[in-house]
């Protein structure tokens, strides 16, 4: 399992990835790295390119430009390891029974773990002889997850995995997923726009916005380099003495100001400082598209340090 600042092997490396559809660029110049064994949240507003990025990683789409490597090899090649992809709409053959869906996994994946897949289905009381078309959204997701986990992937890509689940199923399936990660050291990359879903689950974050990477790195590291400052308003805007710290977002209400900054030196002054929560950090970046992007050293690919702002670890 990964360590706080552990760099180690790369599960994913994106070098200047770009994707253009007829309506224009959806991803542009995306470069970041995800170390192996991490559980990473992929966050961004709708249309930020999350699904496109995951599809490229799953070898469903070919990027227009740039390069992606999965465990050091091209996606889809033998050396890239096993990758499971759970697409957003959880596509399954509707006329297959649940047992037949698992049989599909068995027939198409060498090293398939039938018992593990059956356990996930059984834990949700989903009947094996039911047709997929007759299942509820939660049951469908469970079967799709069983199919994704039955091959014990090295890299698990999940696109909005829990969006159609009730809280109980959500907790159960997240548990099953994290247990798999704990047991097999699986690297997980999951997109979501429910930020609360990420708390306690992710130890790595990638924020996409406007087709580019805004924020990438270890959660603890990202939180530690940001400071939430709350104080009494002085004049029209923020206190002048705060101005030399890179600012992510500031809000002023009545006599009070709140600012998320990325201080180079300790930001001491007549105000209170606190470290932000993951949700506060993400919201601040999502709300301010003009804030400078931040890719921490463990999330940088080689040669990237020259053109991206770095922080001292």
């Amino acid at each position: 399992m990964g360590d706080g600042m552990y760099a180690g092997e790369s599960a994913l490396e994106a070098h200047g990835l770009g994707m253009r559809y007829r309506r224009g660029w959806v991803l542009k110049d995306c470069s970041f790295r995800l170390p192996a064994g991490r559980i990473c949240g992929l966050v961004g507003p709708n249309g930020a390119g999350k699904t496109t990025l995951l599809s490229i990683m799953a070898h469903v789409l070919e990027p227009t430009e740039g390069r992606l490597s999965v465990f050091g090899a091209a996606p889809g090649s033998v050396d890239s390891g096993r990758t499971s992809f759970l697409a957003q709409d959880k596509p399954l053959f509707r006329r297959f029974t649940v047992a037949e869906i698992l049989r599909l996994g068995q027939e198409l994946n060498p090293g398939w773990d039938q018992r593990a897949a059956e356990d996930i289905v059984r834990a949700g009381n989903v009947p094996f002889d039911a047709k997929v078309g007759s299942l509820s959204g939660g049951q469908r997701t469970r079967v799709a997850l069983a199919l994704a986990l039955g091959k014990h992937p090295d890299l698990l890509l999940l696109d909005e995995p829990m969006s159609d689940l009730d809280p109980v199923a959500r907790q159960e399936l997240m548990g099953a997923l994290l247990a798999e990660a704990a047991e097999h050291g699986t690297t997980v990359l999951m997109s979501t726009h429910v930020l609360a879903e990420l708390e306690n689950v992710c130890d790595y974050l990638v924020v996409l916005s406007g087709g580019g990477v805004r924020l990438a790195g270890d959660v603890d590291e990202l939180l530690s380099v940001h400071t939430m400052v709350t104080g009494t308003k002085d004049g029209e805007g923020l206190p002048v003495s705060l101005a030399h710290h890179p600012l992510v977002e500031s809000r002023i209400s009545g006599r009070q100001f709140t600012a998320l900054i990325r201080p180079d030196s300790p930001a001491t002054g007549p105000w209170e400082t606190d470290s932000p929560s993951m949700e506060e950090l993400l919201l601040a970046y999502l709300r301010s598209p003009d804030a400078p992007s931040l890719i921490t050293p463990t999330a940088q690919v080689q040669d990237q340090a020259y053109n991206t702002r770095t922080v001292a670890a």
Binding site: G37, M174, G175, L178, A179, A181, V201
Partner: peptide, 11 residues
């Protein structure tokens, strides 16, 4: 992880 859905790295 299984019971509380907590990242194994956190534990």
């Amino acid at each position: 992880a299984e019971v509380s859905a907590v990242n194994p790295n956190t534990t």
